[in-house]
Design a binder for these strands. Structure first.
Lengths: 348, 348
DNA sequence: CTCATCGCAGAAAGCGCTTGCTGTCACCCG
DNA sequence: CGGGTGACAGCAAGCGCTTTCTGCGATGAG
């Protein structure tokens, strides 16, 4: 029914071994023989059996990419960049590889399960993106899993994710703390003193780092951090909308609001507008990430640009062994402050 | 080195066959035995070898999802919905499946190559999204490939994509023509007569259908379509920006511009603003798709909402055999007109 | 002219799992 | 109390490929 290597071999009058070697091209085969084999492959419309080949060779050409939410451009951009580098029909980077994009939905359990699934498939490499939950038990489980993967020969790269020491995984971490601090200092430089902060979900490292950076920025200028000025929520527009309303309720004298990311910032903007406040006339707003839509917001969003595509591409290359890992297996990726229309001098 | 089924069997004092059956749960195994096996699996930290299992069982639990660009929310949303339905650790939908998201970048060749790769992996199902190129040779090649896949037992679903008759593939097509017509008629209803149209790339079916719908809308109200009012470009913001400028250059008296999709519409808005024109005061703008950011644009974008997530979820279920295919294997998915701030009565 | 050498092709032993078929008990019914 | 019937467990034959090792003819050196 299905065409196998043996069929091709028979038609080309050679042994299966020879066909395999022609297809893999890692063993000398006479040109005339090769040609004959290729012709047979073509005539029979032969398609290699991936599982069989993976079993025999003890490796597969699958590469896993873990993301929190593929519908979110933040992850989409990274995934796209990673994929463009891991080979596949896209980038001419050696053998054709298949990228397996896994949606963890931010759930630690799913993350673990997907890793097992990938391990089961004997994936060639795994790139993990997205946040890390600050739960000791989960981190230990993750680290154990990652270690097992690297020990089994799977290359593991953390992209935009804090390092996992002792696991053998290479990490390209975003400098969330530094970026957030720079952003807050920009607002302070404009004259803002009462700055609200819409943070991400509690218990996430990204949330904590960005918040810490914000506070460091305040501290650097001797501004006391008022706990009423911080509200936690999800990393989405809706959460931003609600958080902004809450912030206003707590202290209507705020002159600026920093959001955990751009989506949240958009929600904040909508809430402010719906409350009759002008941006940046009444309240300045700032985001984080610099996703494509941020420049199109009106006014355009002041934010911290994270080099998502570059970091993803680099992670992809490292995962493929086409670029050396950074010294110590850890690199910090800096963001860049993008000052745009949504931030201005405070009113009054 | 690596733990195999046999190791587990030895430890649990049973035969490999029994272990396999416990793990697959499709054969009666005594509770006490099962427990013993599970214990051994746990103790040895056994991970099933995917390729070996796929080879022996002649099926794999991989599901392919083809998208044009994973960084584009249009595809991200569909991919996410599809994935949530195909099982995986996310949706509790039977066995754990791995979604393979493939970025075709809109290239017909890559589309074909990915399909071969998926065929090679003996994928359980494949969901294709994204546009179709109107090239006869390519379509024939695609159809042949799809037929081969369905013949090999792979379920093939086209999501938001025109049907491929005779291939055995199920199609959930978006009613681009109808949506575009409705949108244009909405503008006409407001009083617009000179309506610019920023179309997608030529030679794509989606582009053609939307443009045809637009023209049908004009025709229905006896408005002659002026060829100068149509500009083609890519499906992105940049193209929209440039196209809008070109449109204005050709005829500054346009009172409305319809864009091929929301991203393009955003570019159009930016260009209009940069030209000192108000929206919708001077020119009304409309998009297509209703992506999440469209409601946040200022003014919010009038557009046609495509039920991306619903269609994706349905496609996923059909691919998994958990929902029956529509009669004839073809269903048309309608869009819904979303009237928002970017469209108003024409000036003057 | 002989023997080591080289270049290429084939034989065959798995890779780790699934599954049809064949036992082997234990139990129940007559 | 015997044979029929189930409920489980094991045997063993692959699944389709890779790869080591062996074989063989041709070539070049001595």
């Amino acid at each position: 029914m299905t065409v196998t290597l043996a069929d091709v071999a028979a038609r080309a009058q050679v042994s299966p071994a020879t066909v395999s070697r022609v297809l893999n091209g890692n063993y000398p085969v006479a040109a005339s023989t090769r040609e004959r084999v290729l012709k047979a492959v073509d005539e029979l419309d032969y398609v290699l059996n991936g599982p069989a080949s993976a079993l025999a060779a003890a490796t597969s050409d699958l590469v896993g990419i873990l993301v929190n939410d593929i519908a979110d451009p933040f992850f989409g951009i990274m995934a796209s960049a990673i994929q463009s580098e891991i080979g596949g029909p896209g980038g001419r980077a050696g053998g054709e590889r298949l990228a397996v994009v896994c949606n963890t939905g931010g759930s630690p359990e799913r993350e673990l399960t997907y890793l097992t699934l990938l391990q089961r498939q004997r994936a060639a490499a795994v790139v993990l993106t997205g946040g890390v939950v600050e739960d000791a038990a989960h981190r230990a489980a993750m680290d154990a899993k990652l270690r097992k993967l690297t020990e089994a020969g799977t290359r593991v790269v953390l992209c935009g994710r804090p390092p996992a020491p002792g696991t053998g995984a290479v990490a390209l971490a975003f400098d969330n703390r530094g970026g957030a601090q720079e952003l807050t200092e920009h607002l302070i430089g404009l004259g803002h003193r009462r700055i609200g902060y819409v943070a991400g979900p509690e218990g996430q490292m990204t949330t904590r780092h960005r918040l810490e950076g914000h506070r460091a920025g305040l501290a650097a200028h001797g501004i006391a951090a008022d706990p009423r000025w911080v509200v936690h929520g999800r990393y989405d527009r809706q959460a931003g909308y609600e958080a902004a309303l809450e912030l206003l309720r707590r202290d209507a004298s705020l002159t600026a609001v920093v959001a955990a990311n751009d989506s949240v910032a958009l929600g904040v903007c909508a809430a402010l507008r719906d409350s009759g406040l002008g941006i940046p006339g009444d309240v300045s707003v700032a985001g984080f990430d610099d996703l494509p839509f941020s420049v199109d917001a009106v006014p355009a969003l002041t934010t911290v640009r994270l080099p998502l595509a570059e970091a993803g591409a680099r992670a992809g290359r490292i995962a493929m062994g086409r670029e050396e890992a950074p010294p110590g297996g850890i690199a910090s990726v800096r963001g860049e402050l993008m000052v745009r229309g949504s931030s201005g001098v405070p009113r009054g």
